[in-house]
């Protein structure tokens, strides 16, 4: 099996690579369209600021490629947010895979949300074997509200999408690569889809 982590200069991809290695999976980092297309599984990471990350995607043409992929794709954190229609962060048009707009958390909360939050209401095989209300580690200032495509929820001030799915596209707001054993389980579930 060939797993590729999209390397477009946005994010701590090393952590994801190491997490996959711990699971016994090899992955390659690549921004090359043909290599990504030839992969069985694709991970789309991202940290940092949305409009900057989107510019980087556009510079490599990956913004056209990603929505056309037919194999399982997992967006993590900002990767998930960029798969949405739009983000308030930097007034950014997203990849329009998930039919939802990303908003900023209310300023009455500490922003960014940093730490381990419970995830619940699973509606996907991505969460197979993960007990309800499991803790996952997140760091983010923006969130996707609950929509039709929500496959897991979390709450910070209000309920939001901890995970989204549409067809072969999956997105998680938290960092499975840093969420201990159950985060590893989620990655394993994705790789075994």
């Amino acid at each position: 099996m060939k797993t590729t982590i999209i390397d477009y200069g946005a994010g701590n991809i090393q952590s994801i690579l190491f997490a996959l290695e711990r699971l016994g999976y090899e992955a390659t980092l690549s921004a090359d369209a043909s290599e990504i297309e030839r992969s069985d599984k694709i991970i789309f990471p991202g940290v940092g600021e949305a409009s900057t990350a989107m510019e980087k995607l556009k510079a490599t043409g990956l913004h056209n490629l990603i929505p056309q992929l037919t194999q399982p794709v997992l967006g993590i954190c900002l990767g998930m947010q960029l798969m949405c229609r739009y983000s308030e962060e930097g007034n950014t048009q997203g990849l329009n895979i998930f039919d939802v707009d990303v908003c900023k958390f209310s300023s009455i909360l500490k922003v960014p949300q940093v730490g381990w939050n419970t995830v619940y209401d699973y509606k996907s095989e991505l969460f197979q074997g993960i007990s309800e209300k499991e803790y996952m580690y997140s760091v983010h200032s923006y969130y996707a509200p609950i929509v039709e495509e929500t496959i897991a929820c979390s709450q910070y001030g209000i309920p939001y999408s901890a995970a989204l799915q549409k067809d072969n596209f999956y997105g998680v707001q938290f960092h499975p690569e840093k969420s201990s054993k159950m985060g590893a389980r989620l990655l394993k579930n994705f790789l075994e889809l």
């Binding site: 090393q14 952590s15 190491f18 997490a19 290695e21 711990r22 580690y137 960092h175 690569e177 840093k178 969420s179 201990s180 054993k181 985060g183 590893a184």
Partner: peptide, 8 residues
């Protein structure tokens, strides 16, 4: 450490 640790 990063290769072995699964928390931040």
């Amino acid at each position: 450490t990063a290769t072995q640790l699964d928390i931040p």
